[in-house]
Amino acid sequence: MSVASEYLQLQRESTEEMVRRHAPLVRRIAYHLMGRLPPSVDVDDLVQAGMIGLLEAARNYATDRMASFETYAGIRIRGAMLDELRKTDWTPRSVHRKLREVSEVVRQIENETGADATDAEVIRRLGIDAQEYHQILADAASARLLSLSAPEDDEDGAALDVADQEGLGPQDRFEQEGMRGALVEAIGGLPEREQLVMSLYYEQELNLKEIGAVLGVTESRVCQIHGQALIRLRARMTGWREQGAAADSSKARKLKSTG
């Protein structure tokens, strides 16, 4: 069914009917997100937030978006869930600090060697044992606040978030597209196994257990590989985070001068 045909069909439905028909999408997205969140997060809270996102999507969908309603609604549902999670940040500051430290070490090693930083190199540079390092990787995979585009001292945002383009000015859109391009390039440069985990998790939407079955490894090992990929991406996106911080600072100065 074309986007235009779907839009005409949706026009004939009431908002309530659209929400009821696509409600299973909310639960599917909620349970997928739960795969990287701690047990303390209540899936019902995510579902409730997601239903609000679905309701907004049903009210605002228009054919000129050039995307199916399910694709559009999925973005709005995920955004609503992530907004809800941001309101109740569970990640200790110590976790953020350790993730930044490991990311910086990975960046240093890769700049020095021109090759992917290995576990052994990172462990040796940090002066910690393998058990502590693996715990940090698990935290990286679980912490929704590992922002790839935020400045180093910014503890807001979510892993691999894609910003909603609505409300962005031309310059903001240009910068966002540039960041996306850099992120795609950085993912393409990951070690093969890390690329595969990222693809299976974010594109195919498999959970960690399912990915483990594909790779023939345990769920905990998949969690570690996922964490390694996120930390490596954070290290390689440092330039974009610094550029974003500089841009925000410039905007703040302009606002202050015109205030």
Rank of each mutant, 00 (worst) to 15 (best):
E185H: 15
Y7S: 11
D248C: 14
S94K: 04
I187F: 12
D139G: 07
I187N: 13
V106H: 11
V214S: 02
D139W: 00
G157V: 05
I187H: 08
L233R: 09
I52K: 10
L145W: 08
R144T: 12
E132Y: 02
L46G: 06
R124Y: 07
T258R: 13
L160E: 07
S220I: 05
R93S: 09
A186M: 14
S249L: 09
A62E: 12
Q195T: 08
E13K: 15
W240H: 12
M179L: 14
R20Y: 01
K87H: 06
M66P: 13
Q195A: 02
A115T: 15
D161S: 09
R27F: 01
G212F: 00
L160P: 07
Q204E: 03
H96W: 03
S142H: 03
L183D: 10
Q228V: 10
R78E: 08
Q228I: 09
Q108G: 04
F174W: 04
R241P: 14
E17T: 15
H134V: 10
D161H: 07
I52M: 04
P170I: 07
L37R: 00
L137K: 00
A57T: 10
M179Y: 07
A117D: 06
A235W: 02
R21Y: 04
Q243D: 12
G181D: 10
E121W: 02
S103K: 00
D119E: 06
G169N: 11
I123P: 08
E112W: 01
N207V: 01
D154Y: 02
